Amino acid sequence: MGTLDGRVAIVTGAGRGIGREHALLFAAEGASVVVNDLGGANDGSGSDAGPAQQVVDEIVAAGGRAVANTDNVASWEGAKALVDQAVDEFGGLDVLVNNAGILRDAFIAGMEESQWDAVIAVHLKGHAATLHHAAAYWKARTKAGKTVNASVVNTSSASGTFMPNAGQGNYGAAKAGIAALTLVAADELERYGVRVNAIAPIARTRLTLATPGMGALFAAEVPEGEFDAFAPANISPLVARLASAECKLTGKVYAVQGGGITELGGWHDVNTIESEGPWTIADLANRLG
């Protein structure tokens, strides 16, 4: 018996890297998987059906169940087609793993509008679009008297939570938005039997290898037989647990890297000042600095 026996899962951005590892582990644990990947370059340009199909072929060769999907999750219509395919192909949907992402790094003063729009579209809108259509499906099921036990796992980042990275204003803003979206969705969708969590992974992928100042760290060779702390496969067991029918966790954001998992908290009180009347600028200068 696998952890995900009988579950139907969508994994976006599953043709390579962390998403590929999610899809392979999910299938090995008994899930039927829709492997979504547009097949574009790091910056989101172009498309290629090959990566998604290669993962599907690997799953099927190992005795699992999977189909490929190359819809663009940054499109409302593409996200709907993705959810519809899962339902049509496997008879339902139990798990949505939002993982697809791109990079178009630039410092804020030199960033072009297209660089901002593309990253926000794939990451933040790409999460919101699939979440919307999956949530609509689960809401309809609940309204029809069906029992829903579903899970969403979103993908935030250290860049958008606890480790802001210069040159990634677009990426960090999108990833911070995903963390916030996760908490709102967890609150909204609980009534429909849906749990929503997020991870902020650190692992070796096309994107991290291309991140200035970080590529050399991730590219360092690991001697054979030693634990590879940056292997993307280290991320997937947590995602599989969050996706399982037995898991009760919701509204959580976890940083995960190597053998470490840390639950993250959002904005919190650090220091409070109060006044018995209206503030003056001079008062604020004295008390805040």
Results as ranks from 00 to 15, higher is better:
residue 280 T to H: 12
residue 121 A to P: 10
residue 219 A to C: 08
residue 264 L to S: 05
residue 97 V to S: 03
residue 268 H to T: 09
residue 2 G to S: 10
residue 163 M to Y: 12
residue 2 G to R: 06
residue 103 L to N: 10
residue 256 V to K: 10
residue 152 V to T: 00
residue 173 A to H: 03
residue 37 D to R: 05
residue 40 G to R: 12
residue 284 L to D: 08
residue 163 M to A: 13
residue 113 E to P: 05
residue 80 K to F: 09
residue 115 Q to H: 15
residue 288 L to I: 15
residue 198 A to F: 01
residue 126 G to Y: 01
residue 252 K to R: 15
residue 131 L to F: 02
residue 230 F to G: 03
residue 137 Y to S: 02
residue 39 G to E: 08
residue 23 A to Q: 04
residue 88 D to G: 08
residue 58 E to C: 04
residue 13 G to W: 06
residue 217 L to Q: 14
residue 5 D to R: 13
residue 266 G to Q: 13
residue 262 T to M: 11
residue 112 E to T: 15
residue 73 V to S: 00
residue 242 L to W: 05
residue 164 P to C: 03
residue 90 F to P: 02
residue 174 A to M: 02
residue 271 N to D: 14
residue 279 W to P: 06
residue 234 N to D: 10
residue 169 G to I: 03
residue 48 D to M: 12
residue 32 S to V: 06
residue 177 G to T: 02
residue 117 D to R: 15
residue 46 G to R: 14
residue 194 V to L: 03
residue 288 L to N: 13
residue 165 N to W: 12
residue 265 G to T: 14
residue 148 V to S: 05
residue 281 I to H: 12
residue 123 H to D: 05
residue 62 A to C: 05
residue 261 I to R: 09
residue 171 Y to S: 06
residue 79 A to S: 15
residue 226 E to V: 08
residue 150 A to Q: 04
residue 115 Q to S: 15
residue 105 D to Q: 12
residue 26 F to E: 02
residue 119 V to P: 07
residue 262 T to E: 09
residue 107 F to H: 14
residue 236 S to R: 07
residue 191 R to P: 01
residue 135 A to G: 03
residue 205 T to M: 14
residue 26 F to W: 04
residue 65 R to W: 04
residue 29 E to N: 09
residue 96 L to S: 01
residue 114 S to P: 11
residue 158 A to T: 12
residue 151 S to P: 08
residue 8 V to T: 12
residue 275 S to M: 03
residue 238 L to W: 10
